[in-house]
Amino acid sequence: MRRMVDEPYFTHSAYSAHTTGIQVKCPKCHGAGVVTADEDNAYFRCLSCGHRMTQDRTVYRYDVHNQCRNCGRYYRVDIEDEAKQHFPILRVACPYCGATMPGEVHKMVDAFSYGAEIQGGKDPWFGLELWFLTSFQGKPVWALNREHLAYLIDYLSADLREKPPGNPKKTQADHLPTFMKTAKNRERIVKLLLKLQDT
């Protein structure tokens, strides 16, 4: 009988993997690459061709704030259009009287992007396809990296799954969709995951 003690809830999450690395496909050579992140940036590095990318994780807000020459009121207009955010000066309409006048575009830090969710089998910062990605009955089955893949294989192939000591409310298995944990699917999903291990 194979026993397995589950792991804490955030052991294998995109947020925790930003230090250990999320394995992805390189957009240039389709070889294996790694996405990591620090407080300021996300980084991609291809292990095959050496291609690299960096992305700022800070979310900025752009606006024009001014005093209207027509009605004298102070206003702020957010600039949502990305194409216009990089102009130093933009003509915008006063939201109070409609008069249009030029104003300086201001860039301010608005938020910090955690990018903690995997959507559609892609990493959260660059949108690159995960290296360990397959599907089962039309549903994506993926792992962030080799450690996560090993955990999934161990968990799904165990006969007895136990909660870790300390009686936590949530464990790593709570991240798994129901179709993966269903007894009739587990054996076939483990076979798919074992094939991924060879890549």
Rank of each mutant, 00 (worst) to 15 (best):
V141T: 05
I189Y: 03
P8E: 15
Y155H: 05
R61S: 10
E39I: 13
P124F: 04
H106A: 12
P88D: 06
W142D: 03
V64S: 04
H51C: 10
D38G: 12
I189G: 04
F87W: 12
G33D: 02
Q85W: 01
Q197K: 15
T178G: 15
D154V: 08
V109M: 12
P27W: 02
Q55R: 15
H12W: 08
A17F: 01
S48V: 07
C68F: 03
F44G: 00
I89D: 07
F179V: 11
L130N: 00
S157V: 07
Q23E: 13
Y155A: 06
P8Y: 14
G138A: 09
L144V: 02
S13Y: 03
L152P: 00
L130G: 02
L156V: 08
W125Q: 05
G138S: 10
D159T: 13
M180H: 05
H65N: 14
G50K: 08
L47E: 12
H51Q: 15
P27N: 01
L193C: 06
V34S: 04
H51I: 08
C26Q: 00
H148K: 13
I118P: 00
K195P: 06
P165R: 03
Y62P: 02
S48C: 13
G121E: 05
R52N: 14
Q23D: 13
C29G: 04
C71N: 08
L47R: 11
A99I: 11
L133N: 01
F136M: 10
D38H: 13
G127W: 09
E162S: 10
C68K: 00
G138N: 08
I22P: 01
R161C: 08
Y75G: 07
Q137D: 11
N167H: 08
N41L: 12
K169Y: 09
I189Q: 00
I89A: 07
T100F: 07
A111G: 14
G127F: 10
A111K: 12
G121C: 05
Q172L: 12
S135Y: 05
C46L: 07
K181I: 05
V190T: 03
C97V: 02
Y9I: 06
S16N: 11
V190S: 02
A32I: 12
V5D: 09
L144R: 00
T199R: 12
L128T: 03
W125E: 04
M108G: 10
R3Y: 13
N41H: 15
L176H: 06
K163C: 09
D110Q: 10
F126T: 00
S16Y: 07
A158N: 06
A14N: 01
I22F: 03
E104D: 06
V64G: 03
W142E: 01
V190Y: 01
R3D: 14
Y155C: 04
P140H: 12
I153V: 14
A93H: 05
W125H: 11
H12E: 06
R52K: 15
M53E: 14
D63R: 14
D6S: 06
G138T: 09
L176P: 01
D81R: 08
N66G: 07
N41R: 14
P168H: 07
T20D: 03
F10E: 09
F126R: 04
K139E: 08
K169S: 02
K25V: 03
R91P: 08
V92P: 02
K25D: 01
Y75Q: 07
L128V: 05
G166C: 07
Q67C: 14
D38W: 15
